[in-house]
């Protein structure tokens, strides 16, 4: 442990962590656009600068480690001025379409501009005019909104391990791009959307099959159904429809997902969904009530068990259903029908 002073108050914090991390743990919020605790510090946005007593320059708190006796100011006048300058520059370079931007409500640039009172960019000049890359079926990249925080590039390389994207060009013309600038569809991209989930602004965005504003949706934490990793995720719910999915941090997935879990939710509200029980009569399915269906099933079970014995009945439970459902299924066959003929397709 080391002792540090933040904004005039003394704290004991772990040795070897960064100032940003220490402040996060202490509940002192420092703005940052490029930091992610799963990635190496990058120091690109410099929004997290703080003043350290005895040092002439402001230091990026994401890449400066705490030292015993350090005295830190996170919101001094000098710090605030520097942050305003950075935000002003970023916003001067940004398309001013926040009213219709899909990210509105969850945009970090918007949040910080609000917090630091940046109403408009004071640097007037050329704005970027790149085409939007729409080639991927699930997300798009709008280079004009990109603030070059490098999160997507680092997430794809260091967490996802695919390295499908990289920075191209320098200075004003820098943008995120695929090899040879051929579009995302021709790259090594596996459409996991992990870059998208970490974009702080509206540059990398999921394509929305249904329009919604970020504040209109309820986020419900649940578990992915597409493989045994069990990634934790949020369903984005609007009304009675699932309109999107976002990764959550779980022990097994660390905030990452793959294409199926992330974008494969379209079946939920699909028009093909079965909506009522069906009973086959003369080779054709006819709609029925639950009562009719239940009566028929229960009568058949009783009849067949009576005639041929319980072992003439069998059931396939499902590796896609919950534990509770599997439990009930085998209990039904064992305790109420009287046979151990229960299986599921674990082997397939």
């Amino acid at each position: 442990m080391v002792e540090i002073t933040v904004n005039g108050k003394k704290y004991q914090v772990d040795k070897g962590i960064t100032i940003l991390e220490a402040c996060n743990r202490l509940g002192i919020s420092i703005p940052t656009l490029c930091n992610d605790d799963r990635l190496e510090p990058y120091g690109a946005c410099r929004l997290c600068v703080v003043e350290i007593k005895g040092r002439r320059n402001l230091e990026a708190s994401c890449s400066t480690k705490v030292r015993d006796g350090m005295e830190i100011e996170t919101h001094s006048e000098k710090v605030i001025k520097a942050r305003k300058e950075i935000l002003d520059l970023l916003y001067s370079n940004h398309p001013e379409d926040c009213l219709t931007c899909e990210k509105a409500g969850e945009c970090k640039l918007m949040d910080y501009c609000y917090e630091y009172g940046i109403k408009k960019g004071s640097y007037i000049g050329e704005k970027k005019k790149y085409p939007i890359d729409e080639s991927n079926p699930f997300y798009y990249y709008d280079p004009n909104k990109c603030i070059l925080c490098g999160k997507c590039v680092r997430v794809c390389r260091d967490l996802q391990g695919t390295s499908a994207i990289a920075f191209k060009n320098r200075g004003f013309n820098t943008k995120v791009s695929t090899p040879f600038d051929m579009g995302l569809a021709t790259s090594d991209c596996v459409s996991c959307g992990n870059c998208v989930a970490n974009c702080p602004v509206g540059a990398l965005m999921p394509k929305k099959p249904e329009k919604f504003r970020t504040w209109e949706v309820k986020k419900v934490k649940t578990t992915c159904i597409y493989c045994g990793v069990g990634c934790q995720m949020y369903l984005l719910v609007k009304g009675n429809r699932v309109v999107g999915v976002e990764p959550a941090r779980g022990k097994a997935n660390n905030g990452l997902m793959c294409v199926k879990g992330r974008f494969g939710y379209g079946f939920i509200n699909h028009p093909d969904r079965l909506k009522t029980p069906l009973i086959k009569r003369n080779g054709k399915f006819e709609e029925a009530t639950w009562e009719e269906a239940y009566d028929l099933i229960v009568n058949k079970i009783k009849e067949i068990r009576e005639k041929y014995g319980p072992d003439s009945l069998g059931g396939l439970s499902s590796a896609k259903c919950t534990n509770e459902e599997n439990y009930l299924f085998q209990k039904m066959f064992r305790a109420l029908i009287g046979t151990n003929n229960v299986d599921h397709c674990a082997r397939l």
């Binding site: 099933i297 009945l313 059931g315 396939l316 439970s317 896609k320 259903c321 299924f329 599921h344």
Partner: peptide, 10 residues
Amino acid sequence: NLKFMYIMGE
């Protein structure tokens, strides 16, 4: 020999 099957989600 098996007369009745109940297949759930398979």
